[in-house]
Simulated scan of single mutants.
Amino acid sequence: MKILFAVSRPLEINTSASIRNRATIEGLLSLGHDVDLITTEFDQNHPNYDQSLSNSNLSVRYLKLGGIQDIAKFGRKFKAIQPLKNITYMVMKYFEIYDNLKGMANYATKDQIDITDSKYDLIISSSDPKSSHLFISRMFERGLVSNTPWIQIWGDPFLSDITRNNKLLNSKIKKEEKRLFKFANKIIYVSKLTLNEQKKIYPNYAIKMDYAPIPYVKKEIYPNSDINKGILTFLYCGDYSSKIRNIKPLYDAINNSRHKLIICGLSDISLESTDRIKVYPRVSFEKTKEFEKDCDVLVHLSNTMGTQIPGKIYQYSGTNKLILFILDGPKEILLKTFNKYNRYIFADNNKNEIFGKVVRIENKEFENTKFVVGNFSPENIANKIININDK
């Protein structure tokens, strides 16, 4: 099939959504589909710019945005105006329901873009950001396309997004979320928990809704690490805002052990590096893979609330490393979702429980869990997405 894949944030900006989108696209390409990516122009001065996330085999059209994006780029280049940029973003959060890449929707006109029903067999838009869906919805509203099947992939829901702080815009967001659903043939969520919740909130669109998990980017089979060496290295790569994830029990458990922990990600809390623990900001995808290769145990940290599941668990599932799955939030549903794979070492998110599982890892009790979960391969997930559209 000839597929148009739309996402408003370029793949070169290192986020969990970019990694998910890259894996999905590569799965489609591996299945023999022809994929065109349309996105916005990347900024090499962006703090999360990561060239390793691009795909040289992919046909990409980059759209140049003005307005707030020009201010943002100027601010990254000249740090003196950074405070002004921050104030602008804070003000926007109280009035604007979309992200600052929503200007992509302005290109959805016949003068700006050459897209018709005869050009593509399928359109896929993927959040986050939500403006990815806004762009395609404008194409339908303005008559550029009318019959081409459209699949929406939602990393986070709109109204129920736990990262959104301003609740004053709830009614406006709910109305907009329903409007986005109107032209979609299928609405896919990457969490079954989110799918079930969305069906309750929007029963009139439940028939369009389905589930497809996140694919890992690449299968990685590492040489078996020697647990008998005495000191293990644990790795947590991901952001850990205190409003969403509680990393302190893990930090304290490892800090009071003989083992080591590497943490890399953004947060609103400050963790100190110690003799046992090294704390880094968000690092490049390639650096993450280096850490991954050298560690003994990968750590997944669940959200403290909401229905979303951090995408890192799927990336880890593409390796043969031990995975410590720290449970938080809706624990019973998480166990039901992931326990069937016999792949993960589960621990409640408290220091004693985590320390107890560390001791059992030392004793080599979980060596039979070190395998790749093939269900999450890019090809399997891409095929599932395509087949969902045929239902």
Rank of each mutant, 00 (worst) to 15 (best):
L144P: 00
L180V: 07
R142G: 07
N196Q: 14
T148A: 04
F158P: 06
K186Y: 01
N165K: 12
K192M: 07
W154Q: 11
L180I: 11
R142M: 04
E197L: 08
K186H: 03
K192G: 02
K172Y: 13
S146N: 07
P157F: 06
S146K: 08
G155W: 10
L144S: 06
K172F: 13
I136C: 13
P149S: 09
K175L: 11
T163S: 14
H133M: 14
E176V: 02
G155K: 11
S137I: 14
K178W: 04
K186P: 01
S137V: 15
T163R: 12
K192I: 04
K172P: 10
P129N: 09
D156E: 10
D156Q: 10
Q152C: 08
S171M: 11
K182A: 09
T194R: 01
P149N: 06
K174M: 14
A184E: 00
Q152T: 08
S146G: 12
G155T: 09
T194L: 00
P157W: 07
I162M: 09
L134R: 11
K182W: 05
S132M: 13
P129K: 10
E141M: 10
R138A: 01
W154C: 09
S160I: 03
I162T: 12
K182N: 12
E141N: 15
A184P: 01
F140E: 07
D161R: 09
T148Q: 07
I153A: 03
R142W: 03
P157S: 11
R142A: 05
W150F: 03
N147W: 07
R142H: 10
K172C: 10
F181Q: 00
W150C: 04
K178T: 11
E141P: 04
M139S: 01
K199H: 01
E141R: 13
F183R: 08
R179G: 08
K178S: 14
F135E: 03
R164K: 13
I187K: 00
K175T: 14
V145L: 03
R164W: 06
L168Y: 15
R164C: 05
L195S: 14
K174C: 10
T163L: 11
P157I: 10
F140A: 07
L193H: 05
K192N: 08
E141Y: 09
H133L: 15
I136R: 11
K175I: 11
V145E: 05
E176C: 04
I173V: 15
T194W: 00
N196R: 14
K174Y: 04
R179K: 15
